[in-house]
């Protein structure tokens, strides 16, 4: 009997099959990565009586957005959104120790010992921490875009302050610190407690 040669499998359709799969994945999947600004909502107070907390007037930066998307910051009407970051940073640092801007209190924050040449050996930082709080209020007709732009500027101000501190003391970007590394985590938490994201949002109400 004649020896049969091994027949080659026709592979011409493999490309078609792969194309089919490719097109399926193109249609059924998306590429967009979810990004956004994460914020914490205040819990609803259990006891209505305790909601009125007395805060010194100089410690509050009131940011109002009216129904036509105009800003009012500290009683001044017509602030532009791009001015807000500077105002917020000045508010939280109070470089001239003005009596109009928030009080500062001396605070001690523990950093990992030996993590920075600018800190004492035990890693305890002593310095001024602002008592400032930002109060953000919006109208029901304010557009969401404007609201988020304002939120973004306020968050940007705090992020910049944190980042500057981190660069000065630890020679690193705040965002480059790794949350899974215990030392980095301690540094991050320490900086977070120096520059708190104190943005309070009032109970919704109509402002004019």
């Amino acid at each position: 009997m004649a020896k049969r040669e091994l027949q080659e499998i026709n592979a011409g359709s493999v490309a078609d099959i792969a194309f089919l799969l490719l097109i399926f994945f193109l249609v059924a999947t998306t590429m967009d990565i979810d990004t956004g600004i994460t914020r914490l909502l205040p819990p609803i107070p259990e006891d209505k009586q305790d909601t009125e907390v007395q805060v010194n007037k100089r410690n509050v930066l009131v940011v109002l957005i009216n129904r036509t998307d105009q800003l009012m910051v500290r009683g001044e009407f017509g602030t532009r959104v791009d001015e807000l970051k500077g105002i917020t940073m000045e508010f939280f640092t109070n470089p001239a120790r003005s009596t109009e801007l928030p009080e500062m209190e001396i605070k001690e924050v523990n950093f990992p010992p030996g993590s920075s040449p600018l800190l004492p050996v035990d890693g305890i930082w002593r310095g001024n921490v602002s008592k400032g709080v930002i109060s953000l209020q919006n109208d029901r007709s304010t557009t969401y875009g404007k609201y988020l732009a304002v939120q973004n500027e306020l968050v940007a101000a705090v992020n910049t302050l944190r980042n500057d501190f981190c660069k000065l003391y630890f020679d690193k970007e705040f965002d480059d610190l790794n949350d899974n590394n215990p030392i980095d985590k301690e540094i991050k938490d320490g900086i977070r407690s120096i520059y708190k994201m104190n943005i309070s949002e009032a109970e919704p109400k109509n402002i004019n």
């Binding site: 979810d34 990004t35 956004g36």
Partner: peptide, 17 residues
């Protein structure tokens, strides 16, 4: 947001590009 506060879902993310 008020409904989320009542539901105690306090971590929110304002989606933005």
């Amino acid at each position: 947001k008020q409904a989320l506060r009542r539901a105690k879902a306090l971590i929110i993310n304002y989606s933005a590009r």
